[in-house]
């Protein structure tokens, strides 16, 4: 089996190649997954209280959390736009590829990480669940599928982090 890879097409363009159908399916579900970000349980994870001081936390919820939410929404929308270019690698191919601007790499990291966190909260995943993601795997079990998706999205995120380490990312600073 070929494993997905991240390639730098040119200084301003990246692409994921050799994406198996399951990985492509995970990417196509990103919009559905990210739409869960406002669920109260999930929002508590994505927008955690910054301190033990409740008045301070209340101000944070009003002033900072909306900025963070906007940041995550914008990143997700950017990635969903890029995913319009997801396509099979040839007429008979069973793998997919997607080309996207290198300037969107941080948005991809944000969206992939957020989707993993959302699935983790939805299904109450623990570290031990992710240590053996494929043991006793049952595709009819929603929790097992969530673990597999967290794993696949993490694989792609790891490629992006590696790319960032190698300098294959734009010269962007922190995300705010």
């Amino acid at each position: 089996m070929k494993w997905p890879r991240l390639e730098q097409v040119d200084p301003s363009t990246l692409r994921f190649i050799a994406l198996p159908p399951f990985f492509a399916d995970c990417l196509l579900r990103l919009g559905e997954i990210l739409s869960q970000r406002n669920h109260p349980d999930i929002a508590r994870r994505l927008f955690p209280a910054p301190s033990d001081d409740e008045p301070f936390n209340a101000e944070w919820r009003v002033m900072i959390a909306p900025e963070l939410r906007h940041l995550f929404v914008e990143a997700g929308e950017m990635v969903l736009g890029d995913l319009a270019a997801l396509e099979p690698e040839g007429h008979w191919a069973h793998t997919f590829r997607v080309v996207f601007p290198a300037a969107h790499a941080d948005a991809w990291m944000s969206a992939l990480n957020e989707a993993r966190l959302i699935l983790g909260e939805q299904f109450g995943l623990r570290e031990e669940d992710l240590d053996h993601p494929m043991s006793k795997f049952n595709p009819n079990n929603a929790r097992h599928m969530a673990i597999a998706r967290v794993w696949a999205l993490g694989y792609l995120l790891e490629l992006l982090v590696g790319g960032a380490d190698a300098g294959a990312r734009p010269e962007n600073g922190p995300c705010l």
């Binding site: 994505l46 927008f47 955690p48 910054p50 900072i64 944000s110 990480n113 705010l176």
Partner: peptide, 10 residues
């Protein structure tokens, strides 16, 4: 704020 922007529990 920066760390939460990267979705860490900070």
């Amino acid at each position: 704020r920066q760390l939460q922007g990267y979705q860490l529990l900070a």
